[in-house]
Design a protein around this nucleic acid. Sequence first.
RNA 1: GGUGCUAUCGUCUAGUGGCCUAGGACAACGGCCUCUCACGCCGUAAACCCCGGUUCGAGUCCGGGUAGCACUACCA
Length: 512
Amino acid sequence: MERRVRVRFAPSPTGALHIGGVRTALYNYLFARQHGGDMLLRIEDTDSTRFVPGAEEYILEALDWLGIGIDEGLRMRNGQIEAVGSHGPYRQSERREIYHQYVKQLLDSGHAYIAFDTPEELEAKRAEIPNFQYDARTRMQMRNSLTMPAEEVKRLVDGGEKYVVRFKVEPDEDVHVHDLIRGEVVINSNILDDKVLYKSADDLPTYHLANIVDDHLMEISHVIRGEEWLPSAPLHVLLYRAFGWADTMPEFAHLPLLLKPDGNGKLSKRDGDRLGFPVFPLEFHNQKDGTVSSGYRESGYLPEAVINFLALLGWHGTGDQELYTMDELIKEFSLDRVSKSGAKFDYEKGKWFNHQYLQLRSNEELAQMFLPTLLANGIEHPDMNMVATVVGLTKDRVNFVPELWEQTNFFFVAPTEYDEKSLKKRWKEDSPRHMTELLEVLENAPAWDAETLDGIVMPWIEAHEYGVGIVMNAFRICLVGAARGPHIWAITDVLGKEETLARVRAALKILG
RNA sequence: GGUGCUAUCGUCUAGUGGCCUAGGACAACGGCCUCUCACGCCGUAAACCCCGGUUCGAGUCCGGGUAGCACUACCA
């Protein structure tokens, strides 16, 4: 009775994988793992006109980066695409023969018919009749195998006339769809049109047919997909019935949509560039239109942060927990705790998640990740131990690895100018004299560790009643160029005696 | 226009008839810590779309309204 759980993520290679699609893939993956089932990946490339080269690779690479594992179908392994499983092929464009067979079955059983109406004719019809719909009310006035003699249909088809196969929707029936998230949804078949299932022009089925055939053949137990599919779910139920597969029809779960952070509507490709944050997991160079879209990976996001962030956009556990590892998500996830309403994409919270996961990474690891940024800023061969040290000193104040540069640049490059605001507030009339004297104190330091320096500088300040804040802030400006940064002795420790003294002298020269 | 789905702080959400004086998180604001800037910690402000009904009792159930969203292709 209990069926093996098999779910699929079935994107179209029409561009970069949208962040909403990533979440759909994630929920499918979590569901599969939790039930010890299979996660399949199938490419739905039945629209040859929208195909974008590189999109398939992109999708698989993105899932691989995020740690969303694929058990069957297409997946990325060591930078190479591989197909695994016995239900293939897993690209719909390679399953033409299979679809032919099922189109024929529907035609033979009277559940579908051939239609010759051209796109132009249909367009004219729509212009002529408001709210025109190709259905039980209108199909008998159109050019199709229901209205034309069988011999003529055969003659046209054999003669290479372009045609489509339409599903014959029976009128006046309440179609029930059971949805795991929304419960029972009922739609009357009268509002459904006779959907095109197959187009002879490119010898490919449409989504609706391919989807049902593949899900059946691949033994999919649960269809977890975006809410935009809810209106066509009744059509899919009707198709399962027409094929005689009603008893093995998968369960449906329609996920709420990801909405724009401002205004209205669902999150789209263009929102990212408009609002200044990525809507794609990886940077994408579209070979078709030449556009480049930014990605979470390239923006400095950690995959575990993206996963955690996305998981909580539309799902929530039973308690107040917000930080989840993938394993915890697999354990806790459940479809009945998925929200019903759309979620505005809150980019700010994503930053916070990244901050949290950044703190968990080791200094050495972060130093490696920081290397490209250093190089981009002209730091050619940094001492990696030193980089790890400064990263450790500053990582708790950044959300992203590249931001480390703003926090650590003075460790690598001595200041040449000094922040005006800091000077105004922290560089006093006595500061040049203090620094000159401090120079002498430091020159005579018996050692250069934090404890030693603190042990001689503090008593010196106290003895002269200069004020700790006044001296230390002026000193900080000399070393950093502004009133910011980690603890002063941590800075002198990294800089070393020679560099520290040189910076104080340079500051004295410029600031007087 | 038609059909469907949805509706709690600015945002993500907890809440499944009394535990709600509506909880948590992000963001905002204030304070503490402190040589600075941050981090961190503590605190403040901030919501049940509206109208009816059911009930001893409604954020929670029902009806209506309103609003938002999705779909309405030989796209997925």
